[in-house]
Nucleic acid binder design. Structure first.
Length: 357
DNA sequence: TTCCGGAAAA
DNA sequence: TTTTCCGGAA
C-alpha cells in the first residue's frame, strides 16, 4: 500500500489536486489579510513569526502595530528590547519576540539590512524553522518549496487518507512526499497560500465544509466518510510499566486460580497467583517449608495495552500441601479443567508455550 | 476541559 | 526524541 497508491492518485489524474486548489483560490478565496500577496520579505517574515501557533484573527492587530511602529528591518533592529516586548505583550510564546530582535539585528549586521533570498540562509536565522523558511522563500522570492504547516498536514492527511502519524519523523517525511506530489512548482506562492487557506477556511479541524469543497471528489477521507479520523497523531499518553510475577501453585494435580479484580485490566478474567512489583518477585507470600519444587521464571511475556506495558514472569511452584491461609481469594482447580477458564492473552501465551498443562 | 500549533531547548 | 513555550476557541 502506501507509495503506489499515492503515486497513482496524484499523477494519473494530472494533478487534479493543484488544478482544483488553484481554481478555488482564484474564484472563491477572498480572505483579506494584509500579508496576502505581500512581496516585501520583511513584512512576510513579521507576519509569519506572528502567525506561528497563532490564529490570523488574533495576530492581525499585532501585525499592523509592528509594521506601523517598525516599517523597516532597520527600525526594528534599532528598537530597544523592552519596547518590542511591550508590543508583543499578550501574544504568547515570547521567545518568538527575542528571536525576532536577534534576527533583525543579524540581517542588518550581516546582510546590510537586505533579507537573505536563499532558503539555506533563511532557515539559519533564529526563530525560523522549516515552515517559516518555506513561507518566506516562496512568498517573497518565488522559490519552489512547499510549506507544511498544521493546515497542510490536515488537508493532505484527509485528501489521501494518510494513516501515518503527523507528529513523528517518519510521518513528517511521508507528508513531505505527499505535498511534493501535488505541488505546483510553477506557482509556488499561490499554491502555498491556497492550501493553507483551504485548511483554515474549508478543511477545518472540526465542522469542515466538505459540501462544496472543490476537492471533495478526489478526497479519499471524504469518500470513505472518515474526514475526522485525520490527521492521525500518535497519542502521547503516558505508558505505565507494570511487572507481574505469576506463580503457578500446584498441589496434587490442582492449580490455584484467582479472578481479576474490578478497576484494573482484565477485570473478571482469571489468573494465577500474582505478585506485582518493580523487580523480580519473591516467594515470601508462602510458608517456605511447603515448597517441594520450584521452577523460577520458566516463561516471560510482554503485553502492550493502550496505556500500559505489562511484563509478566511465570514461575511454577509445586507444594507439598495446600497452605492453610492466604489464598481465600481464589480457588484450587483441577489441572484438567484449567483450560475452561477465561484468561488474558498474556496467560494464554504461557499456557500455549507450556503443553505441560 | 480539551484541542490546536512551529521552533528550540533539553 | 521529547518537552517546553502560550493564549484563544470549541
Amino acid at each position: 500500500m502506501g507509495d503506489s497508491f499515492y503515486f497513482c492518485t496524484s499523477i494519473m489524474i494530472d494533478n487534479f489536486f493543484a488544478k482544483q486548489l488553484l481554481s478555488w483560490h482564484h474564484l472563491e478565496n477572498n480572505r483579506i489579510l494584509p500579508w496576502k500577496g505581500e512581496k516585501d520579505p520583511y513584512k512576510i517574515w513579521i507576519s509569519e513569526i506572528i502567525l506561528q501557533q497563532t490564529r490570523a484573527e488574533q495576530g492581525l492587530p499585532y501585525y499592523e502595530r509592528f509594521i506601523a511602529t517598525y516599517p523597516t528591518i532597520e527600525a526594528l533592529a534599532a528598537a530597544p528590547d523592552q519596547e518590542v516586548f511591550k508590543l508583543w505583550q499578550g501574544l504568547g510564546y515570547y521567545s518568538r519576540c527575542r528571536n525576532l530582535l536577534a534576527t533583525a539585528r543579524q540581517v542588518v549586521a550581516e546582510y546590510g539590512g537586505k533579507f537573505p533570498d536563499q532558503y539555506a540562509q533563511i532557515i539559519q536565522l533564529k526563530g525560523i524553522g522549516p515552515y517559516t523558511a518555506a513561507a518566506i522563500a516562496s512568498f517573497a522570492f518565488g522559490i519552489a518549496v512547499p510549506v507544511i504547516d498544521g493546515n497542510v498536514y490536515r488537508v493532505m492527511a484527509r485528501y489521501f487518507a494518510a494513516p501515518e502519524p503527523m507528529d513523528t519523523t517518519t510521518g513528517k517525511k511521508k507528508f513531505n512526499e505527499l505535498v511534493t506530489s501535488v505541488f505546483d512548482e510553477r506557482q509556488p506562492a499561490a499554491f502555498n497560500q491556497a492550501i493553507m487557506d483551504l485548511g483554515a477556511s474549508v478543511c477545518m479541524p472540526k465542522q469542515a465544509k466538505c459540501e462544496g469543497c472543490f476537492l471533495s471528489s478526489g478526497c479519499r477521507a471524504y469518500r470513505e466518510n472518515s474526514v475526522y479520523v485525520f490527521p492521525v497523531k500518535t497519542k502521547k499518553i503516558a505508558v505505565r510499566h507494570r511487572y507481574f510475577n505469576y506463580y503457578i501453585l500446584e498441589v496434587n494435580e490442582e492449580l490455584y486460580l484467582q479472578q481479576r479484580p474490578p478497576g484494573d485490566v482484565w477485570h473478571d478474567l482469571y489468573e494465577f497467583f500474582l505478585v506485582e512489583s518493580e523487580n523480580a518477585g519473591t516467594t515470601d507470600f508462602l510458608d517456605q517449608s511447603l515448597i517441594e519444587e520450584e521452577k523460577p521464571h520458566i516463561f516471560r511475556s510482554k503485553q502492550r495495552l493502550t496505556h500500559q506495558l505489562i511484563e509478566s514472569k511465570f514461575s511454577i511452584i509445586k507444594l507439598k500441601k495446600k497452605p492453610r491461609s492466604g489464598f481465600e481469594k481464589g480457588a484450587w482447580i483441577k489441572k484438567i479443567n484449567v483450560k475452561n477458564y477465561p484468561f488474558p492473552k498474556t496467560i494464554i501465551s504461557f499456557l500455549e508455550e507450556m503443553p505441560y498443562f
